[in-house]
Amino acid sequence: MTSPYSAAKGDAMTGQTMSDEPLLRVAGLSKSYGARVGCDDVSFDLWPGEVLAVVGESGSGKTTLLNCVSTRLLPTSGAVSYRMRDDSWRELYRMGEAERRFLMRTDWGFVHQNPADGLRMTVSAGANVGERLMAVGDRHYGNIRATAVDWLGRVEIAEDRVDDQPRAFSGGMRQRLQIARNLVTHPRLIFMDEPTGGLDVSVQARLLDLVRGLVSELGLAAIVVTHDLAVARLLSHRMMVMKDGHVVEHGLTDRVLDDPQAPYTQLLVSSILQV
């Protein structure tokens, strides 16, 4: 593995002594579409190795929030600051576009609900995984391919599929490929938008387990947007419940789910179908 991308390994939730500074600071973030509120005055910190779930129904503003934080959508007001690998703090919307895009494809990952939005469907799985490496200057075909094969293995895709296009993959495989493509540069922060959205339940379980394992193994910080409380329970440490663009409840995931305080959260939790 090339050296600059392995630095972030292993500081997963090592707690008070080590990473006592957040990785990401979101302060007073708002986005309005004219008179309509996308998200309103959202603030939170995210620490290295921490997984934050943002839950709510369609239209609650969770995806707007995710896009504003990940610099994919310009917020109306507020600030998003990020601690760079050299520990300097940078405000994302004051960075140049070139630097921001570089950050997005090296130190960050974005997993889309629809894998076709995050993959290049007409190039091989190997090239999909290798693209980020090539984008940061890797110029050795053999190494790129070996790294791609390694990552495909980590997301449980057989080596002999490395030259196949994702068009030939199932939905679950595509989603796993998308994850590998994002993680190959060892990002420190990953955004996921309904990562299990369109998948069959059995496929969901496998993916969730995989994501859970990778997140803890690599010490990733993650923001996961989902409407599925079971996904939030399994993946996240902390949870934010949104409704109509506002954060109605925010806390430790099991506390929010086991002892919901806000009326809306109680409704949400009581609406889960029991199996």
């Binding site: 939730m13 707690g15 008070q16 620490w47 921490e50 440490h237 806390g251 430790l252 506390r255």
Partner: peptide, 11 residues
């Protein structure tokens, strides 16, 4: 804070 709760649970 949630973060402290997690650290306390861990250790």
């Amino acid at each position: 804070s949630p973060r402290d709760v997690l650290a306390i649970r861990r250790d």
